[in-house]
C-alpha cells in the first residue's frame, strides 16, 4: 500500500557515526528508507538505537556521516549550513521533548517568530496562528502568556503550533509527550491526530506504545538499521486490532 504513495524523503546508504577519542561508534549504516507524503510515521526502538539521530538526519537538523538524503528529488546532504536552514524553514517543523520555546517570549510571539521567516504577511500569519491555537485548544488569554506561566501540555501544544505555522511538508516530533503527564499527553497527541487527519505528514520518535498507536506506519530501529516495519492503518479511537497488531510487531522486534 505504501509503495503507491508519493515519496517525500528518500534516504540511501545512510551512515551516522560518532568518533570518541580513537573509537568510532556507528549509530546506523547502509540504511535505506523512504518517507511518504501524508504518512504519520513513527520511529521506535530501544534507548540508544539511534531513533532521534535518524529523524534529525532526515530533517536536515544533523548531517549524516555518509549516504544521501533526497527531498522531493533534491539532495540536502550537500547543502551548506545557511542553505540547510532555509531548507528547514520551508519544509520542516519540529516538536521537541523539552519543548524549547523561547522563554522570554509569549506563546504567540514564539509562533510569530517562526512565521517571520515565511513569505506570508504578518496579518495572515496572526490569523493563521490564532486558528491553530484554537485547533490545539489554547485560549486567547493563554496565548499572551510566557512559557513559564503555562502548563507543560499547553507549552507543548504551542510548540506544535509554532512547528506547523509555516505549513511544513513534514512535522518532526521527538518524544513530544516524554515530559508530560497522562492528560497533557493525550491532549497533545490529539493535536497530532487532528493535524494528520488534515493531511499533515508527520515523523515522530517515541518509545511509548500508546503514542505510537497514533501513527499509521511504525518503523523499528535496531542494530543500526530499520529492523522492521508495521503498517497500522488509519487511527481510530477504539481500535483493539491496531493495538494488537502493534503489540505483536513489537514482540517480534524484541521490544
Amino acid at each position: 500500500m505504501s509503495n503507491k504513495k508519493e515519496i517525500i524523503i528518500k534516504a540511501t546508504k545512510l551512515k551516522k557515526s560518532f568518533i570518541t577519542g580513537d573509537t568510532e561508534q556507528t549509530i546506523f549504516e547502509y540504511l535505506n528508507l523512504n518517507i511518504y507524503k501524508g504518512d504519520f510515521t513513527v520511529i521506535m526502538g530501544s534507548s540508544g538505537a539511534g531513533k532521534s539521530t535518524l529523524m534529525y538526519s532526515l530533517s536536515g537538523m544533523d548531517r549524516p556521516t555518509s549516504g544521501e538524503i533526497v527531498w522531493d528529488g533534491k539532495a540536502i546532504t550537500s547543502l551548506n549550513d545557511d542553505k540547510l536552514a532555509i531548507f528547514r524553514r520551508k519544509n520542516c517543523g519540529f516538536v521537541f521533548q523539552q519543548i524549547y520555546l523561547l522563554d522570554k517570549m509569549s506563546l504567540m510571539d514564539n509562533v510569530l517568530t517562526a512565521s517571520a521567516l515565511s513569505e506570508t504577511s504578518k496579518k495572515d500569519s496572526v490569523k493563521y496562528a490564532n486558528e491553530l491555537f484554537t485547533l490545539v485548544n489554547i485560549p486567547e488569554i493563554t496565548r499572551k502568556k510566557f512559557p513559564s506561566q503555562v502548563s507543560g501540555g499547553e507549552a507543548q501544544r504551542a510548540g506544535i503550533v509554532r512547528a506547523v505555522i509555516n505549513k511544513p511538508k513534514i512535522l518532526f516530533a521527538d518524544e513530544p509527550t516524554g515530559a508530560l503527564n497522562s492528560n497533557n499527553s493525550t491532549a497533545v497527541l490529539d493535536v497530532f491526530t487532528k493535524l494528520h487527519g488534515a493531511g499533515q505528514s508527520i515523523i515522530m520518535v517515541t518509545h511509548d506504545k500508546n503514542t505510537a498507536l497514533r501513527g499509521n506506519r511504525v518503523l523499528y530501529v535496531k542494530d543500526g538499521k530499520i529492523y522492521g516495519e508495521c503498517d497500522l492503518g488509519g487511527y481510530t479511537n477504539d481500535s483493539k486490532d491496531r493495538e494488537a497488531k502493534l503489540n505483536n510487531f513489537l514482540k517480534e522486534m524484541g521490544w
Binding site: M61, D81, D82, A85, R88, R89, F94, Y100, L101, L102
Partner: peptide, 11 residues
C-alpha cells in the same frame, strides 16, 4: 539553536 531549528540562518 531553537532559532536555527526554526530555519533562521547564521547571518
Amino acid at each position: 539553536g531553537i532559532y536555527k531549528a526554526m530555519g533562521y540562518t547564521s547571518s
